[in-house]
Structure formats: structure tokens, C-alpha cells
Design a protein around this nucleic acid. Structure first.
Lengths: 204, 204
DNA sequence: CCCCTTGTCTACCAGTTGGTAGAGACAATG
DNA sequence: CATTGTCTCTACCAACTGGTAGACAAGGGG
């Protein structure tokens, strides 16, 4: 059936376009041209531009959830689990950068779809927070407010992966090698931030 | 002279609009309506929408540079200096959130103005990196690649301040109180990440 | 063979986009 | 008073926006 294939192609190309140019910056005409199809074909599969966007967001949420499930299934503990997640996110950034671009677009203030992604991501968030809490109890991760710590982690990881332009203007060309370096440095940073304090910490 | 006042008002309102809705999402008509003025008045002061955007970016770069100069002038050392910068960024986020919104817009991949902001920000970057390097030498900050560490810091701080939507969907309403909490948690996070290792560090 | 569904197309629409041309209000200056 | 430069306006425009209406080709089932 050629039809559902078209639908799939629209979703994939739209993901790239929305992630690259944002919702407002993407026109159905441009998207159609990129697909080698008429705009009306897009509107056949998705009743409106906004519906298309929502479908793309849902699709992406599934992808993200799968990626994290995969990591969670490995059942690692402490910082090894954190490392596994960082590795996974970086892999995603390398292979499907559009996904991160879309996340960036959706999580912008004033975004009408933020809650949509939020609802799908919420279980992952809860699971991650519980994980942090357990690991704190077990003394494998520095004690602090788990929800807040998770927010710090999220910021650091997504920022490092997303702020490509910042990195470029500052001299890091986003080659594969520099990506590896960034991941390594980020992990060192996170390990330092998460490792429980030693018996004799340095004073304030 | 009412004229230069109009120019100022356009710049301020445009900053808010671009920061809120992005470049593509902001129309000159809407901007003019918000200003209580005709679109052509905007085009009198700025030859095109893009020129306006560049002017706003330049203006914002000056603001940012001033803010950091202010902190740098205080001449603090080690983590106190880092703390002062974080405080300053959070103050900016509370009083003029549009500025960070614009930063987010400009630093998006594919942004045609990224280099424009980059050039103006570069001296600040260099100064910050030198600072980190000096403090590492002095043993007040954990040793690592200063440029990479700076990137990690940037990601964590800007992320924490910018990802309002993420925080909202996860249950943190962006009240003033929660902002204070976020800042405190972020600082604890950064202190843990930056404090030099103790004589007897935990194993890998 | 006809009919109905599926999928893509052409043709079109009203509203919005960034931008141009030029008139008029106004104050300062001669 | 006349002139000049500054500033904002009305009136347009071509191109593009998301979206509608409907034709048409292809195929499957009765």
C-alpha cells in the first residue's frame, strides 16, 4: 500500500523540518516540495498543519520512550545507569539530530504542544526521579532533592547535545570526534556532580 | 525627540516578540499592533525585518556583555565567582526573560545570526575560560579541559533557566519561590561538580 | 462491467506576509 | 513666511500562507 508509506514519509520529513526550522518557520508548501508531492497530499493525510505537528510530536515521544526503556531494561545501578542514559542520548543526537531539534522546539515557552509531549514523557520522568531517590538511599548518588537534581541533569545533558551553534561559534566544529570529547567531558562533569561527598570534604 | 524614543520602543518590543515567538513566528504587523503604530513606521527605522532582528541581537549582546562585566568587576575568586554569575543570570531571567528567550532563538542550529551573537560574546567566553584555567591552577576548581567545562556549565545554567516548559509539565510552576529553589539546587549541583577532588576520592 | 474506495492531483480562495510609494504633519531653521 | 528634514501615516502590491472543492487515475469486489 503506497499510501501509508506516504504517511510515514511525511512524518519523517516533517520531523526534520519542524526540528530544523521550527513550527512557524515550516510551510506546508516547502514541506511538500521537499517530499516531491503536492501540499494537498499532506492535507489529505493530516487535516491541518497543527494536526501534523501533533502527530510528529506523538511519534517522537514514542521514540524517546523506547530509547529510555531500552536503557532502563539493562538494569544498571548508580552512575553506570546515568552513563548509559547519556550515551543513549548522544547516540540519538548523532543518528537522529532532528529528534533533539524537535524537543527543543516543543519545550520552548509558549509552545502549545508542550503539555502534549509532557504527558507522554511524564512516566519516564517519574521513573527517573524514583531511580535517583533509590540511589541516594543506597549512598551511590549525592543526596539532594531528586526532582531538582533531575532538572539539573536534564539541562546539562540536553544543553550539551543541543547547543550546537554555541559550540560552533566558540570553535568546536561538531565533528564525530568532538562529539565523543563532549560526551566524555560531560560524563566527567556529571560524575563529579553526582558522586556522594567524601568523609572529609573541602570547606565552603 | 520622539523619534529615537520610537526606535527604542521598537527594539524593546521586538526583543520580547522575537524572544517569545521566534523570528519566523513574529510578523511586522503583529509587532506594530503591539506597539500601537503602523508597520511602516517600523520599516522606517529598520530597513527590513531581518535588519531589525540583527539590531535586536546586537542590542541584547551589549546587555549580556554589561551584565557579565558587572560581575567580573567584583573580582571574586573560585566558586564565589561562579555563584555570582549564576545569580546574575537568574536575576536576568526573572527581570528580563525575553533576553534569554532571544538567546535561545539565536543559538538554534541553522540560525543565520548565530555568528553575529557569537562574535560579540567571544571575548566573554575567552575571559571565562581563562578564569577557569587560572582557578584550576590555583587548585580552587576541579581540573579538566576548561573549554569543555565551560560548555558544560553553560548548558546547565542556560538550560535550568530556559527550559521553563519542561519544568512546568513536570510540576514546577515558575513562581518566584521555585526560581529561588532552582537557583539554590543548581548551585549545589555546580559546587559538587566543580570542587576539586579530595585526597581520598571514591573509586571509579 | 460498474461502483466505490483510496490516493494524488489541479484549481482556487481569503487572509497574511514583507516591502514600496508617496502624502501630510510637524518642528526647526533661514 | 518659506524651506527643509524628521517622522508617521494611508494606500498599495506581489508573493506566500493554510485550507477547500472537486477532478481523475487505479484498483478491488460485486
Amino acid at each position: 500500500m503506497a499510501g501509508s508509506d506516504t504517511r510515514r514519509r511525511i512524518l519523517d520529513t516533517a520531523l526534520a523540518a519542524f526540528g530544523r526550522d521550527g513550527y512557524a518557520g515550516t510551510s506546508l508548501d516547502a514541506l511538500a516540495a521537499e517530499l516531491g508531492v503536492r501540499k494537498q497530499t499532506i492535507l489529505y493525510w493530516f487535516p491541518s498543519k497543527f494536526d501534523l505537528f501533533e502527530a510528529v510530536v506523538d511519534d517522537t515521544a514514542d521514540d524517546l520512550a523506547d530509547a529510555f526503556d531500552e536503557v532502563a531494561a539493562s538494569g544498571l545501578a548508580g552512575l553506570d545507569q546515568v552513563q548509559a542514559i547519556v550515551d543513549r542520548v548522544f547516540r540519538l543526537a548523532v543518528h537522529r539530530p532532528q529528534v533533539l531539534g524537535l524537543v527543543r522546539e516543543v519545550t520552548r515557552p509558549e509552545s502549545p504542544t508542550a503539555s502534549r509531549l509532557g504527558v507522554r514523557i511524564r512516566p519516564l520522568y517519574d521513573r527517573a526521579r524514583d531511580f535517583l531517590m533509590r540511589e541516594m538511599e543506597a549512598g551511590r548518588i549525592r543526596r539532594s532533592d531528586p526532582a531538582m537534581l533531575l532538572l539539573s541533569l536534564y539541562s546539562a545533558v540536553v544543553g550539551m547535545v543541543t547547543e550546537l551553534e554555541v559550540q560552533r561559534t566558540v570553535g568546536f566544529e561538531p565533528t564525530l570526534r568532538s562529539t565523543v570529547m563532549r560526551r566524555r567531558e560531560l560524563m566527567r562533569f556529571l560524575r563529579a556532580a553526582l558522586t556522594p561527598e567524601n568523609p572529609a570534604p573541602a570547606g565552603s
